[in-house]
Design a protein around this nucleic acid. Structure first.
Lengths: 111, 111
DNA sequence: TCAGGTACTTACCTTAATCTCAGTATCGGA
DNA sequence: TCCGATACTGAGATTAAGGTAAGTACCTGA
């Protein structure tokens, strides 16, 4: 996130959820809390570094809660806060749109 | 857009609408077709180069229609296609979420 | 003592996104 | 002939995002 002032709500929302991974991570957390390794397996293609970086950012935004269990080997669970749930809910129609038009989107030529 | 294959609909949608400007341009077009200069004035902070670049991209995705009027000085109008309208509609809840939590989002510390 | 499992952390590098700023094309009218 | 209006276009630089690979820390149980 770069800006502090926005022209409209969508501007602000895209700034929060933009980037390659945030929406996917949010999505992966929608059903239940997940451990770090679990998320790593679930969000395909993400590196450990990126995963943590994004989780930390979202934690600082108040979207995600981080729960540490003091065990060895360590266990850390991530879950959505209420704020995170509300964002996830707002993303549902966009996800459905993407699902509905997936073939079209994948067929768009790029170079 | 970089990818050709997605894990879920949201993944695809974020790839389409991601970046700093696309959602805002889409939004600016929701009410009516607009001329280039009009858009430029309406999407605050965007440079001419970025505006065209994004419009062309969205045109190639089939989201935006470009209508040229052969006049001097030139007149070009951009409007949403049906596909663009459907995406815009899917973005409404996200826009509302951003509006509702705008103050919270603006208050997030960044560095 | 030492390997194993989990969750990070760090340094460094590559690529992609965005910005700045100057320039082009067209034609009607002063 | 030259200016103004509009819609671009391009070079070059800067900034941000993302990736790779190796290393750390902890305790447990063999």
């Amino acid at each position: 996130m770069k800006k502090r002032e926005y022209n409209c709500g969508l501007d602000a929302a895209v700034d929060v959820v933009g980037g390659k991974w945030k929406a996917l991570i949010l999505w992966a957390l929608h059903a239940a809390p997940r451990r770090f390794g679990d998320l790593h397996r679930n969000v395909q293609g993400i590196s450990e570094k990126m995963l943590i970086q994004q989780l930390r950012e979202m934690e600082s935004y108040g979207l995600v809660h981080r729960e540490v269990y003091h065990q060895v080997p360590p266990k850390v669970e991530y879950s959505l806060t209420e704020f995170g749930v509300s964002l996830n809910t707002a993303l549902i129609p966009l996800g459905e749109w993407g699902e509905r038009h997936r073939a079209t989107i994948e067929a768009i030529p790029r170079d």
